[in-house]
Design a protein around this nucleic acid. Sequence first.
DNA 1: TCTTATATAATAGTATTACTATTATATTTG
DNA 2: CAAATATAATAGTAATACTATTATATAAGA
Lengths: 226, 226
Amino acid sequence: MKHILANLKISISKNLYLTDPNSSILGRNIILNSIEIIDEMGFEKFTFKKLGNTIESPEASIYRYFKNKNQLLTYLNSWYWSYMEYQLVFETTNIDSPEKRLEKAILLITSNSKEYIIDGINLAKIHKILIAESAKSYLTKDVDKINKEGAFQSYKQFVSRISEIIIEINPQYLYPQMLVTTIIEGAHLQSFFAEHLPRLTNKLNTPNYITTFYTNLAFLSIKDNK
Amino acid sequence: MKHILANLKISISKNLYLTDPNSSILGRNIILNSIEIIDEMGFEKFTFKKLGNTIESPEASIYRYFKNKNQLLTYLNSWYWSYMEYQLVFETTNIDSPEKRLEKAILLITSNSKEYIIDGINLAKIHKILIAESAKSYLTKDVDKINKEGAFQSYKQFVSRISEIIIEINPQYLYPQMLVTTIIEGAHLQSFFAEHLPRLTNKLNTPNYITTFYTNLAFLSIKDNK
DNA sequence: TCTTATATAATAGTATTACTATTATATTTG
DNA sequence: CAAATATAATAGTAATACTATTATATAAGA
């Protein structure tokens, strides 16, 4: 598996950049270092100027790759969900039981331990960014515009794949997408709250209690509406 | 009830402003018009300059009331959750059954029809803002700092009140806060998705399907862990 | 009542941010 | 090897977020 991962390249829709960051050293530097800086200082304080300083290129050169920092965040988002979809497909092939596949999917969403480095990208860090910053890429007045440009396609595709598993378990179930996004955004939120606002969540000393909670929730809802 | 609402003033922690906006006409103008502008153009494009223009006061005067626009958003957030807590208490007093009280609470969270104007504030609009912008007040690197200043106290208090109802229903239940925040943020998200990213949710033609979904989810989880 | 203190508002700035137009330097292709 | 093209660097600008200072109104005490 590690071998396959090492050779994997994730391809991103052409609408999400001006110049493909994978096509040059500068481009790859932009991606790699933006993850570091956003992780360090948060998306609001992240600027192309600061990024330019760390990679020792003028900010204008970064603008050749991305229209603005929101587009860069959307790119990272898209990359993350494409990677997650790949992981999902990889880990669920050859498993007949849709219940088992759903369990794997929820584990994938709720687990924080992503130790791989793929495509040069540190998965743990991009996961951490996603938890804290991803909502900002759709919670904007431009959402309809960038949606048309395909900004959320990987996310939709990932959600759709899990929804299909749910429908396999219970073809009568009415809320597959609702359930999946509730789990994804809920799990992200609980991780964030556990670290910063503990009174808004419940920290149990059971390992993977977030996984347990959402797995339970999912199966209860799916089987109840049968 | 309308009479009581008309006379109600919601009091906000002194840490969430520099000068109490309720203490002057300018202050009240700041609150009322900021809601309009944020609703119209989104929080990112909202500036004190623009607000100053519409209320015909220089932006520097607004800085006397709020440190920055994030503090203003936090104030609106806090106002909203204090109001929601008031509503919750009001609507659940004299109801013995904790199940019925929880139902009322979830209806309150998930319902979009808030037609009242209280304290001069248009509830429907502040609710709409909360759906799209509230996450931005905690998804920031300053979260720990502003948390210490009490920025999220009203939210925590609201969550805590509902958690207590859940514990009444099932004293063994392990995840009351997790469940409540999952419902609150999930319901907000589904409203947003229904409007902008329909493929990420399920739009049923049943009225109040979001309420139904989360009410079901809540009771299933609470009763299962008994 | 008048002076003084204090609250409040307006003026006039600055540093930073987000972005663009233009020029220079590589690299590729015929 | 020249021309075309891709890429990067320079040098800006308008807008944003904020502050220091000055002016004006209001309230309190003598």
